[in-house]
Write a protein that binds this DNA or RNA. Structure first.
Lengths: 220, 220
DNA sequence: CAAAAAATTCAACGATCATTGAAAAATTGA
DNA sequence: TCAATTTTTCAATGATCGTTGAATTTTTTG
């Protein structure tokens, strides 16, 4: 019975991570207690501390669990669009697409885990205290790769304009990932903020046009 | 001594609001304790509960205090750009400008209060639990006015495209208001995320181009 | 000035929090 | 199977939480 035993071992740890992921995404770090996690995962209160050291360790473990996977997907998408482009480099639109398609893609999976993770990323990205370390650690390396690609696709543009454009892009993406449902209210139900397919289809042209309008070649 | 007495009375209440505003903006609703507020405002612990009922009442009071002021400014900016335009209505760019200029304008004041308030709005806007009620109550009426103006400036565009465009716009604006400093890290200090003037100058053309690219007249 | 009202302080309530050491159970390795 | 290791449970710790009723002070009102 070694196999099922191992299974059960892992199940508890993963159940804690799944529960914590969903709770942290909805209520933030301080809004979630270890007791909520334990109850949701149906394990003893002390078990999460045993496995992850403390509450912050649990939070970091939740972030880390999927960051490698999604970052690899996004990096692969970027490399694909670079390698399939000519010597002049990929088009701006292809870069923008590679940046968001993997993210919104995993959100369409049946498993709610990735959706919770996206909401969590959105929450962390617009947080002062959590965002500083976590985003830098888990996502900045990837973002820098994209910035490099953007610089090539926007020759002659001022560096500041590219960074600001990316910032606006990041904000639009973040609010979409958050899926707060406010868009539903505002549109009286005509638009569903959890329709990631619709969001993806529209964000690419919107952002691409924004980049092109702002990041024009400098005069000189 | 009635005058200074009244002054002191108001001072305590406002000191509580100022302190709570700064703390809530940085650490969120659950991240702030009544004791932190009391200590920061240098008042007794029980005083905030006396004035505002409970913690949630204090939070709502913080939100409400400046919402009327800023909403009036933004509405006035919208009406100005409408009245100064011809019969065809204002240009898209003027509407976008009216939407954000008052917000980023107050952020430039010497008093840090408005800056904290902006950060708080950003936090609330990307929060599930707080956002639902608070944003609807304090900001949705204004947003609907802008949506109406946008519809006129984008004749023939699909309603869904306008709502999604506004959503991306709102995300870009929100992350900028948050001033998390992540942009500073990413650009190695070349761009300052608290440079609201620079943000404003770039957000208008970026967002305007996004709207124009996405909200084209429907075929039919 | 005296009474009424509002503002402020004080002390304490029960509840919940994260963490931990030790005991117990389950799993692994030989 | 038996010892070693890991996992899980149990019980309790001290700290902090929001709220409140009563007492006290300050301000307003007549």
């Amino acid at each position: 019975m070694a196999k099922t035993a191992v299974k059960n071992k892992v199940r508890r740890k993963d159940r804690i991570l799944d529960t914590a992921e969903a709770l942290f995404a909805r209520m933030g770090f301080v809004g979630v207690s270890m007791r909520m996690v334990a109850e949701g995962a149906q394990v003893d209160l002390a078990l999460a501390s045993y496995h992850f050291g403390n509450k912050r360790g649990l939070f970091d473990a939740v972030l880390a669990r999927r960051s490698d996977i999604i970052n690899e997907k996004r990096l692969e998408a970027l490399r694909d669009c670079i390698s399939s482009a000519g010597a002049a480099g990929p088009e701006l639109e292809a870069i923008v697409d590679a940046f968001i398609q993997p993210l919104l893609g995993v959100g369409l999976e049946k498993d709610a885990g990735w959706r919770h993770y996206m909401e969590l990323i959105a929450l962390v990205n617009s947080s002062h205290e959590l965002g500083g370390q976590a985003m830098t650690q888990f996502f900045d390396p990837l973002v820098n790769e994209f910035i490099q690609a953007l610089k090539k696709a926007l020759p002659g543009a001022a560096e500041e304009d590219i960074y600001w454009s990316h910032h606006f892009f990041s904000g639009a993406l973040t609010l979409t990932l958050a899926q707060t449902g406010r868009l539903d209210n505002l549109s009286s139900g005509k638009v569903k903020s959890n329709d990631l397919e619709a969001a993806y289809r529209r964000m690419v042209p919107f952002v691409t046009a924004g980049f092109k309008a702002l990041c024009k070649p400098e005069k000189g």
